[in-house]
């Protein structure tokens, strides 16, 4: 399986630390510890300037009415960048898969909305496992009979959790979450881009899911650091990742990944962090990280993608082949 192109899309709005401080919500010691593990410094949002200060995210319907964009619009923009980087026209796509934990509508599926916006008349549906969207979809497609996979598959994850954050009550979610979409174009038979050499997908029941989304979104960063390190170490071993590989790990723990990289035999400079300047965008975040380094990965270089902590443990080892 080959990833021919990756793309990402972020809304223009930015929530700064000053914006959050202006809300006057005190940060507990536990919240500060959690924030130190993530390292998020700024968050992108589809909410208009000043909206959070005025409404504090008290009502999701108000947030949605005011929003400057939507998960579908962000997903569409990410898809277009991935298609452009892959050199694939939308009309060549034979299957569209999407993940969205913050859909405006539960029906039709996000994949169908984005595929419809691209004018496609092809199978389209959602595959969702929580926050490890890219790792999941790579393993699923890699497990299929090649003849059952179309030439080009468009896979997206798009999330706008800032619409669901209760800014007046939940400083942790407010500090961590941002909106973004990511996309990849995958092919089983066109050798180019990044080849998925190995992948795995298993159930992980060792920790509570760190993010839950219903009418509001909440975050729990209680996953012990030692457990995270052990799981990442195990994942890298399972993938047979070379020491020089770039690491796209759980993006909720960007700062912690930097700190523990050396103990994983990974160069801290090779740890990719998409959340630091944009906030954590749930399932979109792994793809955003891949998109961020798409043009930097040189021929023969490897990228290890590892996802842990929300019921799924998944990983993929990619290598630049073209």
């Amino acid at each position: 399986m080959f990833i021919l192109g990756a793309g990402a899309s972020y809304p223009e709005g930015v929530i700064t630390d000053s914006d959050l401080a202006a809300l006057g919500i005190p940060l507990s010691a536990a919240t500060q510890d959690a924030l130190a593990r993530s390292g998020v410094k700024a968050r992108r949002t589809i909410l208009p300037d000043g909206f959070i200060r005025t409404h504090k995210g008290a009502d999701v319907l108000q947030s949605r009415a005011a929003a400057t964009s939507s998960p579908t619009a962000l997903g569409l923009a990410a898809a277009r960048q991935a298609l452009a980087r892959a050199g694939v026209a939308a009309e060549q796509v034979g299957l569209v898969l999407a993940d969205c934990a913050t859909p405006r509508q539960t029906c039709p599926s996000e994949a169908q909305r984005i595929a419809g916006s691209l004018g496609l008349k092809v199978p389209a549906y959602d595959i969702t496992a929580g926050i490890g969207a890219l790792a999941l979809v790579l393993d699923v497609l890699g497990s299929w009979k090649p003849e059952r996979v179309p030439d080009y598959v468009l896979c997206m994850s798009t999330n706008t959790p800032t619409e669901l954050v209760r800014y007046g009550e939940d400083p942790l979610a407010a500090s961590l979450l941002g909106d973004a979409a990511s996309a990849v174009v995958v092919s089983p038979r066109h050798r180019a881009g990044l080849e998925a050499r190995r992948s795995f997908l298993t159930r992980d029941r060792s920790v509570r899911p760190p993010v839950s989304v219903s009418r509001a979104v909440s975050v729990d960063l209680s996953m012990p650091g030692e457990l995270l390190r052990n799981q990442l170490s195990s994942g890298l071993l399972q993938l047979g990742a070379p020491k020089a590989a770039r690491l796209i790990g759980p993006q909720l723990f960007g700062a912690e990944l930097q700190r523990i990289a050396a103990s994983l035999s990974v160069d801290p400079d090779k740890v990719v962090d998409s959340a630091k300047e944009a906030g954590y965008s749930l399932g979109s975040s792994l793809g955003c990280a891949l998109s961020a380094v798409w043009d930097e990965v040189s021929r023969g270089e490897s990228v290890a993608i590892l996802h842990e902590g929300d019921g799924i443990s998944a990983g993929a080892l990619l290598e630049r082949v073209g």
């Binding site: 969205c100 959602d126 496992a129 929580g130 159930r203 029941r205 219903s214 929300d310 019921g311 799924i312």
Partner: peptide, 24 residues
């Protein structure tokens, strides 16, 4: 929507298998 419906049901069933939503 998070965790997914499949994960929630798998937990209730005490099922250790991989669980994800496939939706149309």
């Amino acid at each position: 929507t998070l965790p997914g419906e499949a994960v929630r049901i798998a937990e209730r069933l005490d099922c250790p298998g991989v669980a994800y939503d496939v939706y149309t």
